[in-house]
Amino acid sequence: MSDHPGKISRRTFMRGTATVAAGVAVIGAPTEAGAQDLAPSRFSSSVTVRFEINGVDHVLDVEPRTTLLDAVRERLQLTGTKKGCNRGECGACTVLMDDRRVNSCLILAASTDGRKITTIEGLADGPVLHPVQQAFIDHDAFQCGFCTSGQIMSAVGCIAEGHAGSNAEIREWMSGNLCRCSAYPQIAAAVEAAAGEIV
């Protein structure tokens, strides 16, 4: 395929698997006149990341396409974090990255070097549950449980951000977590109770 820049290249690229294969073969090959000769060597097909998960340091070699979600579940066997939609639409994969809640399906593991990640497995203090975990139990805030780890991680972030001041505020700021069992009233009540306990 030709090396037209930008959108033309992208569209041409879409047209068939043959051109896709050709595109992959381009890696590391000489580039168009004017492009930096050194630049292709800057790109790598395997990345070493060092990050802290739940207080433990890890070193992983990952393919660039590996998401943080897949690294956590498949490589580190921390399967409490769930893969729901894998599109950022359901919130089941929510984790804390540097104490902020994020969708781990939308993050490349390669970009997490030096980061601190907290998953559902990192919340409890030994046998003592985190207040948000306990509140979910106390308020019966789940049925099937698949969304629950994401709900709890999101709630921890929501409370820390100061967006758990009322039931309405909790519902707005927790809207990135879907619950198809529709336990929303109990979830919001649990977050409200936990916020009162933590603050």
Binding site: D3, H4, P5, F13, M14, G23, I27, T31, S111
Partner: peptide, 28 residues
Amino acid sequence: QQPETMSIAGGTELLNWKRIGIVEPARV
């Protein structure tokens, strides 16, 4: 400026484009 190269920042779009097959950058 390398051909078939795209940037990523938040990642909230690019990863989904790749999953759907909207783009197939050789380099990110």
